[in-house]
Design a protein around this nucleic acid. Structure first.
Lengths: 154, 154
DNA sequence: TATTTGCTTGGAGTGCACTCCAAGCAAGCG
DNA sequence: CGCTTGCTTGGAGTGCACTCCAAGCAAATA
């Protein structure tokens, strides 16, 4: 087996645009509320993600409190992206399982992602075609408004 | 026994692809099953739309069966578009109310649509940024696959 | 005439993705 | 020590958008 960085891959700081603070540097153990601040998810949702198997095993303190790592945060960033594109939670859980199973699932992971990418592309096309309808109707209303303003100025 | 309530059996004569098939020319009174065939919605959903006020008043036969007009079909096309873009049903109902109230709501309708158009644009941008992440990860997996194929050809 | 088909209704049920609750434990602070 | 804050749990509840059900009626077909 070739030694390759396998598991939850590194999702580098790509956007971080949506919600959340930048990650404090040099830290690698985050409480649940820190993760809430970073991701914009609720603590409920984070615990729920763990329960349904959407999170890799999360570390705990000696008193049982969760301590998330940077790797966990990377994973949540990816999950957030997939969620934004409307991937069903069940599919994300499936992906998480594949990641847990290690390198021999690379092909299946690639396929899952490729299929999803196609869905996203279709979705974008759909939205763009709706945009045209929206533009058309907005113009109709705007024209009507301008016409009425011309004839009946307030 | 009602057979065709959920699966538009007759429905996919032609492309059930994006939205229905071409409207028969010269007709202006469609039964619910014809509308099912055209729109891809279920009869349940059509009745539900009417109940919640998402449809303008639908005409009836003397025995109480619905007869949809071309105008209704146009409306459903628009609703379908808005639905595709994720506009909440409540907002579409609001829009329907404005339409019922007549011309004096033009400005408000324009605003509603403009706001929504902005949402759609943001959504597209979001999806496009996710596409980049997807591309990146798919490439990681594809590279790994190509590498393993080179060293360990089957 | 008898059966089948297509439609009607109000209300109940489903699936998804959270979202919240109640009870309880541990640590920090005055 | 008592109080507050932050976290824990399993299970129940919420909101959305359908989705289905059961009973029944009218028209068409056998």
């Amino acid at each position: 087996m070739t030694v390759m960085e396998s598991a939850p891959v590194k999702a580098r700081k790509h956007c971080a645009g949506s919600v959340g603070h930048p990650r404090p540097t040099g830290q690698d153990r985050y409480s649940i509320s820190e993760v809430v601040a970073h991701t914009g998810l609720t603590a409920h949702t984070l615990r729920w993600y763990e329960r349904i198997g959407l999170m890799p095993h999360v570390d705990r303190t000696h008193t049982g409190q969760r301590r998330f790592t940077n790797r966990d945060l990377d994973w949540l960033d990816l999950v957030g992206k997939l969620r934004l594109t409307g991937m069903p939670v069940a599919d994300m859980v499936r992906y998480a399982e594949l990641v847990r199973q290690g390198e021999q699932t690379f092909a299946e992971r690639e396929e899952l992602l490729t299929t999803h990418r196609e869905n996203v592309r279709e979705r974008i096309a759909e939205l763009q075609s709706t945009l045209e309808v929206l533009d058309f109707k907005i113009n109709v209303y705007a024209d009507a408004r301008r016409a009425s303003e011309r004839f009946d100025p307030v």
